[in-house]
């Protein structure tokens, strides 16, 4: 297995073309969301060309209409006005990121872990008063580098994961096998997809253990990954928590004993279960790890 050279664009192209296509509408949305106040008009214009977002907006609005025994709406702007810009932003991000993840080439264990971290990151972001949709996207993408390894050589990556589950250090194994670790590859993929720099920086730093964090998103994802394991999302016999970053908690001014934190834990669990149910899945167990290798072999 030749080592990956991230300086070579052809290498990234090789990997990116084997991954699900990244939804361009999310890239545009992330730029819009850098502004706290985004008008309904701008969001509707973005949504109009995307049938998935349009469908979800109409479905959400019509659910409300039926509660009031009113006829269904077919006009997108009217539907968007009814559900409001907050919900619109969530739908735009979630619909496309779930579609990106739910692509058949993505192993289910990867999908469920990414979804869990995304939901937990979003909930923690709301507790901390930070940008929650950006946290969701960063959560979905935080381990995209692992998916990159997987599409490149599923057998090698499967063997590496088995060693990591047996206790060996994952990123060291990745560097030995592929020449880079999943954080480095993930950052390179984020740049290739022309995502905001903050997403790439977060992917690169989410396993870091600094005494102090400088930005908001990396500690959010760091804590989200820890908390999703602690909440057993998704279920896995391998879920373990060995450390919790006090520096991340301090940076975000979060406390586990905050009276609202118990509610946050419950929301994470229910949202994850509900999302899986909508997609026709149940919480994955470690048996899926072995199936994932077979899927990878079928892709070659």
């Amino acid at each position: 297995m030749p080592l990956i050279d991230l300086a070579q664009t052809t290498t990234l192209e090789q990997i990116a073309t084997r991954l699900p296509p990244f939804p361009a509408v999310v890239s545009r949305l992330l730029i819009l969301l850098e502004r706290e106040e985004v008008s309904l008009d701008e969001l509707v214009r973005l949504a109009r060309n995307d049938p998935v977002i349009t469908g979800d907006i109409l479905a959400t609005a019509n659910r409300l209409r039926r509660l009031r025994v009113q006829p269904d709406l077919s006009d997108l702007f009217a539907a968007a006005t009814l559900i409001g810009s907050n919900q619109l932003r969530r739908i735009a991000v979630a619909a496309n990121m779930n579609r990106f993840l739910a692509c058949s080439s993505v192993p289910s264990h990867f999908f469920q872990h990414a979804l869990a971290v995304a939901i937990v990151a979003q909930e923690l972001a709301m507790m901390a008063g930070k940008a929650s949709e950006t946290a969701f996207v960063a959560g979905i993408l935080h381990d995209i580098g692992q998916l990159g390894f997987y599409v490149l050589d599923a057998q090698a990556y499967g063997a590496l994961r088995r060693q990591a589950l047996a206790g060996k250090e994952m990123m060291m194994l990745e560097r030995t096998t592929f020449g880079v670790d999943h954080c480095q590859l993930g950052q390179a993929l984020a740049r290739y997809w022309q995502l905001p720099e903050v997403i790439g920086e977060t992917i690169a730093a989410h396993h870091a253990c600094p005494d102090e964090w400088c930005a908001d998103l990396p500690p959010l994802i760091n804590l989200a990954e820890t908390l999703s394991a602690a909440l057993d999302l998704p279920y896995s016999i391998y879920n373990r928590v060995h450390s919790v970053s006090r520096a991340a908690l301090a940076h975000l001014q979060l406390r586990w004993d905050d009276p609202e934190m118990h509610d946050c834990f419950c929301r994470c669990r229910i949202r994850f279960a509900h999302q899986l149910a909508k997609l026709g899945q149940t919480s994955h167990d470690a048996g899926g790890e072995r199936n994932a290798e077979k899927i990878g072999e079928g892709m070659k």
Partner: peptide, 28 residues
């Protein structure tokens, strides 16, 4: 939770704080 966090006697304070709070959360 005890399986996920491991031996309570060996838990560091940061893990212990999270463990204690999760023990009180209503199960799904």
């Amino acid at each position: 939770l005890r399986t996920i966090f491991g031996d309570e006697a060996r838990m560091d304070n940061a893990c212990r704080e999270l463990f204690d709070q999760l023990c009180e959360v209503e199960p799904c």
